[in-house]
């Protein structure tokens, strides 16, 4: 991971310099951070990059079979928070996470817990499609192989077909599984990455601006896919598109300067938000 503490501190420092004068006191989140069937439970999560605090006491549940969208201006901490959910921040030197994040009751920051299998349970799809420079088949087979999830070629073939089908890509690639994944279109590559994530049977899928590099048609296909995936997985998605958050998620969380300002049913957030900062941001009055 090329990001360093200095990079992150600089980014946060630059973003907040004008707003520091307005006070960075901790804010109480408006709305209910809990949900009926939580898969992940985050409580009082703080994240520090060196001496800079990027996330301040955030509590939020991610429920079973729901899509939670995280929105907010650049530098607000939404991606940082997302990356806490599968310990991706562990790869950044000097990054410190406090508070509690539990997956099905298990503290994912428990010292005895291996983060590698955790990242299979809590998979991640990134902003830019990043298929391995291998065949389509090998891209999807990689995870199940290294995690030892299959015992035979036939079983692996079954997992690959199932994953590509769930990712809505099977019909487009079934006749060219041996072709390079990098030869697919951007939207297909992103669905290949989703298939790769699904192949290791995750419980939660994290998506960090998964459509920002895609055209509207590819975006619509991914959004349709997200809705289908919700039947089997919990999904947390970071997006800069208000409309995307409104379309794909059941709950929305609005972040601002490291605070979780408001969380609520997506319908409520986009029609009648309770916090002025949320209202200003989603209506385009921010800053």
């Amino acid at each position: 991971m090329s990001t360093t503490v200095d990079d992150m501190s600089r980014r946060i420092g630059a973003m907040s310099s004008a707003e520091l004068a307005g006070g960075r006191e901790s804010r109480v989140t408006v709305g209910d951070v809990t949900c009926a069937n939580p898969r992940m439970v985050c409580r009082d999560v703080d994240v520090f990059y060196g001496s800079t605090q990027a996330i301040k006491g955030v509590s939020l549940d991610i429920g079973k079979n729901e899509v939670v969208s995280m929105i907010g201006p650049s530098g607000c901490g939404k991606s940082t928070f997302l990356r806490c959910l599968n310990r991706m921040n562990d790869t950044i030197d000097g990054c410190r996470v406090t508070g509690s994040i539990k997956l099905d009751g298990q503290d994912i920051y428990d010292k005895g817990l291996d983060p590698v299998p955790l990242r299979a349970q809590v998979g991640m799809v990134f902003q830019k499609p990043n298929p391995f420079p291998k065949s389509i088949y090998e891209n999807v087979a990689y995870g199940p192989r290294i995690h030892g999830l299959t015992n035979s070629k036939a079983e692996l073939d079954e997992v690959i077909e199932g994953s590509l089908q769930k990712a809505g890509l099977w019909n487009e690639v079934k006749d060219r599984l041996d072709k390079p994944g990098t030869g697919l279109s951007g939207g297909q590559q992103q669905r290949l990455c989703i298939a790769r994530t699904i192949a290791v049977s995750p419980e939660v899928i994290l998506m960090d601006e998964p459509c920002s590099a895609l055209d509207p048609i590819a975006t619509a296909i991914i959004e349709e896919l997200i809705d289908e995936l919700r039947a089997n997985y919990s999904i947390a998605i970071v997006t800069h598109s208000m409309q995307q958050a409104a379309r794909v998620s059941q709950r929305t969380a609005y972040f601002h300067l490291g605070d979780l300002i408001e969380v609520g049913e997506t319908n409520q957030i986009f029609t009648n938000p309770k916090h002025r900062l949320t209202e200003d941001y989603i209506t385009g009055r921010f800053g």
């Binding site: 409309q243 409104a246 986009f270 209202e279 989603i282 209506t283 385009g284």
Partner: peptide, 10 residues
């Protein structure tokens, strides 16, 4: 053009 939300939608 604007896809109004929240108070703008109202």
């Amino acid at each position: 053009r604007r896809q109004p939300t929240a108070v703008d939608l109202r």
